[in-house]
Each structure stands twice: as structure tokens, then as C-alpha cells.
Design a protein around this nucleic acid. Structure first.
Length: 868
DNA sequence: ATCGATAAGATCGAC
DNA sequence: TCTTATCGAT
């Protein structure tokens, strides 16, 4: 090789390396491993996303140039000089891709698959920042499901579906199955609907079609029944032109398997495939990845077997464990340096996870300091636990931290309630991620169903959903008759409705059906003539839905607000997509969106969520509540070693969310599902090296605490099982003026009357309590709920301010009168209609520009007077 | 057809 | 405890 070439190649490597100088050597190794199968085992907080982004950037900028001897063209003296100068000056070489890249990918040659839409968005965002808008924006970054939808929108007709197929969510799915149960007269006690759905889902995951299943011998009558249901289910979806979530993957895999032309098209297009969170992929998803990557075999998967927590949902950890066997010649790179947590937190995580057998094995390390020990607090009950969290948060705030630095994690959603209640009373702004999603609300789904049948008149499921919502005198019997007629003629139900007069058996409801159909036609016409948001507004009005909600009082109001939000979300969609915005496009977006996607970390409030939702996130201060046997690990997992390992991984995920400090808590008694239980501490606690733990406990458990609690003892009770004890205590509390009690009240003051009641054996836990409370935690009986959307105003400043001042005093200033224009943090601008002073506060009735009339308490709402 | 009552059931939950 | 689903009465 000519010297000039040799020098050029060496300089080229040096140049490319310098573009990724901020990475550590192992990370850089991953970035330069562009060709062939690559497994990146990325521990929690090891800069995984950074590696992904840089690797994709490398593929687009330099292709496989690093470490290669290939050249895009013979080297000239001038080239060498340019490169020398660029390296010496540490500057970018002009037109570097053309000069020195080796077969670089165009952005659309890269397919990056992530776990959530949010993760996909972040990936794109960072690629854009790194490569510029044009290059970065054109990379395909999406979830499995949206990637499949995009392929199917192009090729659905090849497998007998319309391009405009509808996506059924689990709710729609359930409706179809229930319908089938009715038709086939299946007893749901013999075979629960859920079980049938689960089995069908697992068939699809194993790529078995309804015919495949029906063709095999059955183990028993149940299996035969499931097969029958599966066949009927698949038939209905096909007839409706609909796919459920499993179908999106299933049909895409089938398409790629059976259609060589389609397969080659996508294999040529996606020269590089990257899959994030590979430990949580399913069998069908594995097949999809293998098929897509089949052309070049350039497949890179990133994951952490220790963070596989979705087995219950079909994820199979074998995908990651067997990667090297399935993709021969695979390279494996381990990212074990953690940039997130302190050593103590990390070691706690390591000491827990090392008890799992089925893992690849890796040990995270950090060069951060030890930090504080991991805190473990033993509470008397869940209120005390909440109060302790509030105390700690208060301390952190006084030290300058903000609310959004804190997260409370729990095993199941049911645990959020006591904490929520406590936070609301204390005026601590919080926000709950997960639970009921916006697009899952009944009213939103109803209106979406109207939209769906306009886009796809064959969608019988959605039609059934809204044909009598609001009530139109079209009852079950009529609907069933239409269903039968449609089935016998092999046409959609809407087709029958269009010609009611032809069917004497529909005589009775004919008038109502005609009215409904007329409205439907009108909406169809409007859908093409009006802008999207205005059209949705019309759907809400002309369907009679608005009138129905108006007729209800309190409850209808919030639901109308939700519909208002729906209208604004479609407006946002329309604004973002300009010319390309369509009704079906919006519905698709809605179908594939999750709550976590809309989670933004800007709002200053404490985040509350399940550990599952917390995957991929990090917070300076993390509280993990309910570290109890029977809660975490959960009751169901205790007796099965495999499930136990999954719980342990979940625990590992929880611990590794924390950057600075980690607070674990256990409660001696806990009310869950209406019953008070005493759970022993979680087994995972004893797996943590005791030297890493800092133990504290409720004052009531230390002897003198019990006496203190009895001071409020009018509510103490001997009733076993919390029912009367609990509600009595909390009611009594609300009515009394506990605000007045002296500072330094113990965290548990709130509920002590209840907890110290009967059969507690104090002192069984030797350790001394550290007095952390400075009073605010227990005192705020009269704070108004901060609400779910967590207006920050009142709570924050109170917390940071004088601890035992009554909160309502500080906000005394503003007074409102009719006619004032106000600005509300959450609801926007509005005009005061009426102001009624009451007990030192003021009920203000406001006409908001966007959300209608609302009543708020002047001192507690995040409200500001703009003009008088 | 619609409302109210009562019973059952209840992890984790992306798309 | 709390929600959701189904049934039976009007």
C-alpha cells in the first residue's frame, strides 16, 4: 500500500474518532461496529441512547469508514493535505461524506425501533441536533407498531386488507370477543373473555393464524373452543377492515415472509436496523427484526437483560439471551459504566440483581462518589409513609431542590391513592403518570368512534358503540337484528341501516334509524368540507353528545372539558401536519399514542408512577414505596422462581432510577383493596448489603411515639381491619384544627390515632428514629386538593416557606370582583363572573376563554389578576 | 329502554 | 375500597 494511502487511512480514523471524542472507549467501540449483527448490553444509566444516536450519526456521516481500508476514491496529495489540516485544526472537513465515507447510509436507510413513541421522538430530536434537520429528520425512528402501520398502509391490499384499515385497541377487541360469545352462546365462566384474548394474542405472537390453529389437534374442549373463537374473531376483523395491535406485527411478518417483492423492497430500504429495549421484545417482533435485517444482516440490538420486566405481556428474555446464537458472527459489547447514580445506589442495585440466575451477568460501576446511603424507612401505615415522603421532600426543597426532582414509584397503581390524598391535602403539587389515559376516556372514545365510522363505514364495532350513545331509542334488540341481517347478507351494518325501509323486521325502530343515518350522512359531508377541528366540534354537537353532557351536571362538565381537549388535540395535529392532515391520520395517531408519551418533565411537580412506567427515566430523588412481601414482590410472584426473578429485575429498575438519593419504605400495616394487611418487609431489602442501608422508622414504633399517637386518641380503635378505624380517623382529622399543633409534629400525626390502636408491639425494631419532620408534613388539614394536573403555585411556596404557618394566610392578598380578567396556570385566560367571600377565602366563578365556566378557590388556584 | 342496585373482581400495561 | 358489569324492575 502506498505510504500516502496508509497515512490517509490513519488520519481518517483519527479524524472520525475525534468526532466522537466525548464517548468512553467502549461506547466508541459500539459506534464504530457498523456492519453485521451487534448486541449492546447496556446497563442502566450507561449512556445507551447517546451510543445509539452517535452510532446512527456515524453510519450516515462516515458509513463503515472507521477501521476500514476501503476508500471512496484513490487518495491524492491534496486530499491528504485537507485531511491533515482538518485534523490539526480540529475542524470539520468540508464535504467529508463524499471525501472519506465508505458506503454511508442515507437517513432513510436506517430504521430505529424504540419502545415508546416518546423514546422515538427523543431519538429523532437528538439526531436532528447532531446531524441537522434534513439528515436527522429523515431517519425512521418509531415503535414496532407504528413501523408496521407504515408498511401496512403501503401494502395492506396485498394481504386482503384495505389501506385505510382501522386499528382496534384492547377495548374494541373485547367488544368483538364478547359479541362472539353471545353469538356462539359461550359461557364466560367456562372460558373467561380475558383468557380467550390472551390465548389468541399468544397464537399471533407465535405467528399461528386461525387456520393454523384449527388445523392442529386440540388438547381439550377448551382449546377447541378458543380455536373457534379465534376463527370467528379473525373473520370479523377482516370483514370490518380492522387490525388489533397484535395483528399489526403478525400481518407485517406474514407479509414479509410470503411476499418476496415486499420483503426485498424493505430489506433494500432498511440497510441498518437498530432495536432499542430488545429485552422486552416478543417472538413475533424477533421474527420481524430478523426479516427486516435479512438483507444486509446489519442489525444492532440494545438492551439489558436485567431490565426485562414485560414478560407478562409476551416479552421473551430469550431474544436477548440467544441473540449471539441466532445471528451468527454477532459482536457483543457491554456498557457497564454508569453515569447516573452514586456508588451506594448502584451497589444496592447490584446486590439485589446478583441473586438472579438467568442473566448474562454484568456489574455496573461508577466513578461518582459513594453519596448517601440508601434510606429505608419503616412506617406504621401508608399515611405515615406518605407523610414521611412529604417531610423528606420538604427538606430537599429547603435545600434548594425542586419538586420535579422527585419521583414516587410503586408496584401497582392502587398504591398511589393514599399518597395522592396526602399530597393533595398538604398542597404538594404532584402528577400521576399512567392510570386512565386521556384517549381511553369513554367520551373521547365515543367521539373517536363517530370519526372512525366516517372514515371506515365497515367498522361495526365502533358503530355499535355509538349508535345509541346518546340515547336514540335504538335498543339492543334492534342492534342485534341489524347485526344478524348484516351477517346474513355479508354486508356492513351501516349498509342495512341505509336501507331500513327494505326490512319489515326493523319497522319499529325505522324512524330512529333513519334519523341516525341522516345525521351520519350529514357528518360525512361535513368531514370533507370543513377543517378538522371544526368538524370534530360539529360531530360533538350534531350527534347530540354535547346536549347529553349538558343535561348532566357536575360529571358532564368534566367530560365536556375532555372533549374540548380532544378538539384542541386535533387542532394541534392539523397544525403540525398541514396539508397531510387527515381524519384517518389523526385516528391512527390516537390509536398508537400512550400516556407516557405526553409526559413532559417541565412542570414543577412530584411525579408519581408505577415502576414499569418509570423504565428509562431518571430522577435525582426516588422514593420506592411498599417494599413489602406481598406487595413487592407481589403475592402472585412469590411462589414461582421465574416470576420472582422478574420482580427482582423490577426492583433493579426501580433502584437504578435514582441519581442522588434513594428512599425505600415499608409499612407495618397497609390497607389495600379494602383490607388492612400486615406485611413483612420485602425480601429484596434483605438482599441489599446492610452496610449500604440507613434505617429509620416511624416515631410511633420507638416507644415514646406510641404515647404521642394516643394523644389524638379519640379515634383510636380496637376494630381489627381498618374499615371503621380508617374512615373515622380521616374524617375526624379533616374537621379539626390540627394546623395549630406545634411544630415538630411527627410525620405520622395525621393517622396516629388509628395506627396506635390495637395490637402494635412497639420497640420490636430496635433502631432509633431520626426526627426528620419539621412539621409541615402533618399539619395541613385544610389545604385544598392540588389536583391531578398539579398547579404549582400555593403548594410550592408554602413548602419552602415558614413550616408551621397556616398555608391559607400567605395567599390572602388577591381579592377578586366580577369583571376582573384573570390568568389561570392551567385553564388560561378568563373573566370573573362572580366572587363569593367565604371563611377567609373566596369562591371565584370564572368564564374561561377555552374551557368554559369553572369555580375555584381564590387562594389555592394558580390564579393571577391581569386587569380589573 | 333506562335506571339503579348489587355483585364481582382487582398487578404491572406499550402499541 | 373502589370500580365496573350485569341484572332486574319500572
Amino acid at each position: 500500500m502506498a505510504d500516502i494511502t496508509k497515512e490517509y487511512l490513519a488520519l481518517r480514523d483519527q479524524y472520525i474518532e475525534s468526532r466522537f471524542a466525548r464517548l468512553n472507549p467502549v461506547q466508541r467501540q459500539a459506534v464504530f461496529a457498523t456492519e453485521g449483527p451487534l448486541l449492546i448490553l447496556a446497563g442502566a444509566g450507561s449512556g445507551k441512547t447517546t451510543v445509539l444516536v452517535n452510532r446512527i450519526a456515524n453510519i450516515i456521516r462516515f458509513g463503515s469508514a472507521h477501521g476500514s481500508t476501503e476508500l471512496p476514491r484513490p487518495v491524492t496529495e491534496a486530499d491528504l493535505n485537507d485531511l491533515r489540516n482538518a485534523v490539526a485544526a480540529g475542524r470539520d472537513l468540508p464535504r467529508e461524506t463524499a471525501y472519506l465515507a465508505v458506503r454511508p447510509a442515507r437517513p432513510w436507510n436506517v430504521l430505529a425501533i424504540t419502545f415508546t413513541n416518546k423514546a422515538a421522538g427523543e431519538l429523532k430530536e437528538r439526531l436532528r441536533a447532531m446531524l441537522g434537520d434534513t439528515l436527522g429528520g429523515d431517519v425512521n425512528a418509531s415503535t414496532f407498531h407504528s413501523a408496521c402501520v407504515r408498511m401496512l398502509r403501503r401494502d395492506a391490499e396485498r394481504i386482503g386488507f384495505p389501506k385505510s384499515f382501522t386499528i382496534y385497541d384492547s377495548d374494541d377487541q373485547q367488544r368483538v370477543i364478547k359479541q362472539i360469545y353471545k353469538d356462539l352462546m359461550i359461557d364466560d365462566k367456562f372460558l373467561p373473555v380475558k383468557s380467550a384474548i390472551g390465548q389468541i394474542s399468544s397464537f399471533k405472537d407465535k405467528l399461528l393464524s386461525a387456520e393454523d390453529v384449527a388445523g392442529e389437534p386440540f388438547a381439550n374442549t377448551k382449546a377447541q373452543l378458543v380455536s373457534k373463537i379465534y376463527t370467528a374473531y379473525a373473520g370479523r376483523l377482516k370483514a370490518a377492515g380492522a387490525m388489533d395491535f397484535d395483528d399489526l406485527i403478525f400481518h407485517t411478518v406474514k407479509l414479509l415472509q410470503n411476499d418476496a417483492e415486499a420483503r426485498e423492497y424493505y430489506q433494500n430500504r432498511f440497510r441498518y436496523v437498530v432495536v432499542d429495549e430488545y429485552q422486552d421484545t416478543s417472538i413475533a417482533q424477533f421474527h420481524l427484526v430478523r426479516l427486516l435485517a435479512g438483507g444486509t444482516n446489519n442489525v444492532c440490538v440494545v438492551g439489558d437483560d436485567d431490565q426485562s420486566i414485560y414478560k407478562f405481556r409476551g416479552a421473551t428474555i430469550e431474544n436477548i439471551l440467544n441473540f449471539e446464537k441466532v445471528f451468527t458472527g454477532a459482536k457483543t459489547i457491554r456498557l457497564e459504566q454508569n453515569y447516573r447514580s452514586t456508588a451506594n445506589i448502584l451497589n444496592a442495585a447490584n446486590s439485589v440483581i446478583k441473586n438472579n440466575m438467568g442473566r448474562k451477568g454484568k456489574t455496573l460501576w461508577t466513578d461518582h462518589g459513594d453519596g448517601e446511603k440508601v434510606h429505608h424507612y419503616t412506617a406504621t401505615n401508608e399515611q405515615d409513609e406518605a407523610s414521611h415522603i412529604a417531610d423528606v421532600i420538604g427538606e430537599h426543597l429547603r435545600e434548594g431542590a425542586s419538586l420535579k426532582d422527585h419521583a414516587v414509584l410503586y408496584r401497582m397503581n392502587a398504591q398511589s391513592n393514599p399518597i395522592e390524598t396526602y399530597f393533595a391535602r398538604a398542597g404538594i403539587p404532584y402528577r400521576i403518570v399512567g392510570g386512565q389515559r386521556f384517549f381511553d376516556r369513554k367520551e373521547v372514545k365515543d367521539i373517536n368512534s363517530y370519526l372512525a365510522i366516517i372514515v371506515n363505514p365497515r367498522d361495526d364495532v365502533r358503530l355499535r358503540r355509538i349508535i345509541n350513545e346518546p340515547a336514540r331509542k335504538i335498543g339492543m334488540t334492534t342492534i342485534e337484528k341489524i347485526g344478524e341481517l348484516a351477517a346474513s347478507k355479508g354486508v356492513p351494518m351501516m349498509e342495512i341501516i341505509a336501507h331500513v325501509r327494505d326490512y319489515p323486521e326493523l319497522q319499529r325502530a325505522a324512524a330512529a334509524l333513519e334519523r341516525f343515518y341522516e345525521m351520519y350522512r350529514e357528518l360525512c359531508d361535513l368531514s370533507v368540507s370543513e377543517p378538522l377541528d371544526q368538524f370534530v366540534g360539529d360531530v360533538i354537537a350534531k350527534s347530540g353528545y354535547e346536549a347529553m353532557l349538558k343535561a348532566m351536571k357536575e360529571e358532564g362538565e368534566t367530560r365536556r372539558e375532555n372533549l374540548g381537549q380532544l378538539v384542541s388535540s386535533i387542532k394541534t395535529y392539523a397544525d403540525q401536519n398541514g396539508e397531510d392532515a387527515t381524519l384517518s391520520g389523526f385516528l391512527e395517531e390516537v390509536a398508537l399514542i400512550s400516556d407516557l408519551d405526553s409526559y413532559d418533565n417541565d412542570a414543577d411537580s412530584v411525579t408519581m408512577m408505577t415502576i414499569h412506567s418509570a423504565k428509562g427515566l431518571e430522577f435525582p430523588y426516588v422514593f420506592v414505596v411498599g417494599m413489602e412481601d406481598g406487595i413487592f414482590p407481589g403475592e402472585m410472584a412469590k411462589y414461582n422462581e421465574e416470576d420472582m426473578e422478574e420482580e427482582r429485575r423490577l426492583c433493579y429498575v426501580a433502584i437504578t432510577r435514582a441519581k442522588k438519593e434513594l428512599y425505600l419504605s415499608t409499612s407495618r400495616t397497609r390497607m389495600i383493596f379494602g383490607q388492612t394487611r400486615r406485611n413483612p418487609p420485602s425480601a429484596f431489602l434483605s438482599e441489599i448489603d446492610p452496610g449500604l442501608l440507613d434505617e429509620t422508622q416511624s416515631p410511633e414504633l420507638t416507644g415514646y411515639g406510641g404515647g404521642f399517637g394516643a394523644g389524638y386518641g379519640s379515634y383510636s380503635t380496637n376494630v381489627p381491619g381498618g374499615r371503621s378505624g380508617y374512615s373515622g380517623a380521616s374524617r375526624g382529622y379533616l374537621n379539626s384544627e390540627y394546623n395549630a399543633h406545634p411544630r415538630g409534629g411527627f410525620g405520622g400525626g395525621y393517622s396516629s390515632g388509628f395506627a396506635s390502636g390495637g395490637h402494635e408491639s412497639p420497640n420490636s425494631y430496635g433502631g432509633r428514629h431520626q426526627v426528620q419532620s419539621t412539621g409541615f408534613g402533618s399539619g395541613y388539614g385544610r389545604s385544598r386538593s392540588a389536583g391531578n394536573t398539579a398547579p404549582a403555585g400555593a403548594g410550592t411556596s408554602t413548602l419552602a416557606g415558614a413550616p408551621s404557618a397556616a398555608p391559607q394566610k400567605k395567599a390572602a392578598a388577591a381579592s377578586y370582583a366580577a369583571g376582573d380578567i384573570v390568568e389561570h396556570r392551567v385553564f388560561g385566560r378568563g373573566k370573573v363572573l362572580k366572587a363569593t367571600p367565604i371563611a377567609g377565602d373566596c369562591i371565584v366563578e370564572i368564564q374561561f376563554d377555552r374551557v368554559g365556566v369553572k369555580k375555584t378557590m381564590a387562594n389555592y388556584a394558580p390564579l393571577k389578576k391581569v386587569e380589573e
